[in-house]
């Protein structure tokens, strides 16, 4: 049995190394967004920044909350809230794959000793009207990164496109430290006292209590009410922006520029999270599910279009809402089953 590396990176060192690596390659280091998101892609630094023509490079850690994935802290591999390191390269440089592989070196992974594969995996988020083409990156059989070339976001065709690298931090850390349970990952190591703080020390209570809340105590009626309030306010904002855009569709006036689309997006994110809580509570039937997802997507798509308009000071470019580029449609044969 091979012994693990003598001094594998702690969880926080892993984050620091990756941040340093990408900062040195021109990325803005952002901080995690402070509204609940289900995936790093939903943070405005990705969802909104990939829209429009302005080049941008950013890296940030984003905790992602998926209430239905909670396991009361009892499952060694599954979390309600996991952390992703998100990198957006807009437009992607030609050597983006090589850069990515170099970043693995920065974590102390010597690729000559490992097996790395890029396996087809196309990402799609129906809630965001977003999708892209790419791979899951497999390291010795473990999926460590989702690598995506965004093609569409909020129903808007992207030009230029962005490359999105999503590192699964817990997975990578447990790989580096050779831990079978996420909770055993060494988060920090105090160089003075030698004291070790584990992932469990930092996060276990979080997992347990939010599992109890999401599965048992979240009040369904109130969550629905919150959902409707957020949705309603977001819609009102979008309507106001549309009225503004109609008046001044010839340019980018100050009224448009100061319009709080970013706040509208926060409301949309809240809807998405409330939907996830309701889903975890089992309050949404499969039939309803599709309908509620469509409501959230309507907000996301509305915001994306308005955002593009606000950025360019012109009407949104025409877009294709169909998330498909298949020339000849070759549908997979799918038997009707549960969603």
């Amino acid at each position: 049995m091979p012994s693990p590396k003598p001094n594998p990176l702690t969880f926080q060192e892993l984050i620091l190394r990756l941040q340093t690596f990408w900062a040195e390659r021109g990325c803005v280091l952002q901080q995690p967004y402070d509204v609940e998101v289900g995936a790093g892609t939903m943070a405005p630094e990705t969802f909104l920044r990939v829209l429009g023509p302005q080049p941008y490079k950013v890296a940030y850690v984003q905790p992602s909350r998926r209430p239905a994935d909670g396991r009361y802290g009892e499952n060694p591999n599954r979390l309600f809230k996991h952390m992703q390191l998100q990198v957006i390269l807009k437009p992607p440089p030609e050597n983006v794959q090589e850069l990515y592989l170099e970043s693995l070196g920065a974590m102390g992974i010597d690729l000559r000793q490992h097996d790395i594969k890029f396996e087809e995996d196309n990402w799609e988020s129906p809630t965001l009207g977003a999708w892209g083409i790419g791979w899951q990156v497999m390291l010795d059989g473990l999926e460590i990164t989702q690598f995506t070339y965004f093609q569409q976001c909020g129903g808007v065709d992207l030009d230029p496109i962005s490359a999105e690298l999503t590192y699964g931090l817990e997975r990578i850390a447990s790989f580096l430290q050779d831990k079978d349970s996420i909770y055993d990952i060494v988060w920090a190591h105090d160089p003075e006292t030698g004291r070790v703080t584990t992932y469990g020390d930092v996060r276990l209570a979080d997992e347990l209590q939010f599992s109890v809340y999401n599965f048992e105590l979240a009040e369904v009626e109130k969550a629905w009410k919150h959902f409707e309030l957020c949705e309603g306010e977001c819609r009102t904002l979008l309507e106001k922006y549309a009225a503004l855009a109609k008046e001044k569709n010839d340019g980018l006036g100050p009224d448009k520029q100061r319009f709080p689309l970013l706040a509208a997006y926060d409301l949309c994110l809240k809807c998405s999270h409330l939907f996830n809580i309701l889903d975890a509570r089992g309050a949404i039937s499969v039939t309803e599910r599709v309908g509620v997802i469509a409501r959230v997507r309507a907000l996301a798509v509305g915001i994306a279009k308005a955002f593009v308009d606000q950025q360019r000071g012109e009407l949104p470019a025409k877009s294709e809402p169909e998330p498909t580029v298949e020339k000849k449609v070759k549908k997979k044969e799918v038997a009707p089953t549960t969603a």
């Binding site: 060694p76 599954r78 000559r112 000793q113 490992h114 790395i116 010795d140 059989g141 473990l142 050779d178």
Partner: peptide, 24 residues
């Protein structure tokens, strides 16, 4: 997709992943 695993490092990784999957 490489020429071997002389120190069993890759095997060890695969075994870890499979163990987690089977536990699930």
């Amino acid at each position: 997709n490489t020429d071997g695993d002389p120190d069993g490092i890759i095997r060890h990784g695969h075994e870890r992943v499979l163990r987690a999957r089977f536990n699930d």
